[in-house]
């Protein structure tokens, strides 16, 4: 190996340490007793292993409930986006109807609108529908996101029209074509959209922070944020264990399916 190459590897390895190190340290520290977490100088490998932080998380605080809430909301939001975005994406890419261009522009334009612009009226709307502090209130505003439409349309544009025409010539109805011909071809795009949507929902913060007003509807990030600025703000052990519970499921999904992530970024990121 040349010297230049060795240097390159050293720099990359250092970068990896800086990026991944905090996660490793978070995981290790979550198994330390509070006193050891605050020890100066800090320990890297725990001297005393304890599950105390996790026990507190699951008994003193209601983390199983928050975990379930996050999962329920993420599953519903993901299912909604897969269905609604593929329907509209197909219509925009392959069907010709009046208003198509305007609709696409409106959806694209929405990508630029900051969440802060919509959240106050959304809150007024959801409150007046009687859906504040409910799963419906947490899910409804996210069922149909513009990003998914963009992704599905881009993917569907690359599918040749001949396939759809052939099915039409064979006498298949429009819905049948969609379910039997188009959707099966979309599997890679649906996988990417599903993962990205699930993640975005799992990590979503502002809306559940505002809509979930009682403990039993908190999602994980809301609970963690409120504990970290509330009366538990000084309990690093508890907060680090909470962060592990938020992060680890996502890391497992990411590591298992990282090919889809990278493809998703490449397809939506360029052109």
């Amino acid at each position: 190996m040349t010297r230049a190459k060795l240097l390159l590897y050293a720099v990359l390895a250092l970068g990896l340490l800086v990026v991944v190190g905090p996660f490793v340290w978070m995981l290790l520290s979550s198994f330390k007793p509070e006193a050891e977490i605050r020890a100066v100088p800090p320990t890297w490998w725990p001297h005393t292993w304890t599950l105390g932080n996790y026990r507190d998380l699951f008994s003193r605080l209601d983390f199983p409930q928050y975990f379930a809430n996050s999962a329920i909301v993420a599953v519903l939001v993901t299912a909604g986006n897969l269905l609604f975005c593929s329907l509209l994406g197909y219509a925009l890419a392959k069907l010709d109807f009046p208003g198509r261009k305007a609709l696409f522009l409106a959806v694209l334009g929405m990508l630029m609108v900051p969440g802060m612009v919509t959240f106050v009226p959304q809150f007024v709307l959801i409150s007046n529908m009687g859906l504040a502090n409910s799963y419906a209130g947490l899910v409804l505003p996210f069922l149909a996101g513009p990003f998914g439409v963009f992704l599905m349309r881009q993917f569907l544009l690359s599918i040749p029209d001949d396939l759809i025409e052939a099915a039409r010539v064979d006498g298949a109805g429009e819905w049948r074509i969609f379910w039997r011909v188009v959707l099966p071809l979309c599997k890679p795009a649906l996988a990417t959209l599903g993962i990205l949507t699930f993640l975005a929902s799992w990590n979503n913060f502002l809306w559940p922070l505002v809509v979930a007003t009682t403990d039993d509807k908190y999602t994980l990030p809301v609970a963690l944020a409120l504990y970290s600025i509330g009366q538990n703000r000084a309990y690093y052990g508890l907060l680090l264990a909470g962060a592990v519970v938020v992060v680890v499921p996502v890391l497992i999904v990411f590591l298992a399916l990282q090919r889809h992530f990278m493809r998703g970024i490449a397809t939506t990121g360029l052109k």
Binding site: V19, V20, P22, F23, W25, M26, L199, W202, N203, F205, L220, P221, L224, A225, S228, L239, L240, G242, A243, V246, V247, V250, L251, F254, Q258, F261, M262
Partner: peptide, 14 residues
């Protein structure tokens, strides 16, 4: 890419 997919709240805590 790891930090990109993790919750910003969890990262802020860490």
């Amino acid at each position: 890419y790891l930090p990109v997919v993790t919750s910003i709240v969890a990262i802020a805590v860490v």
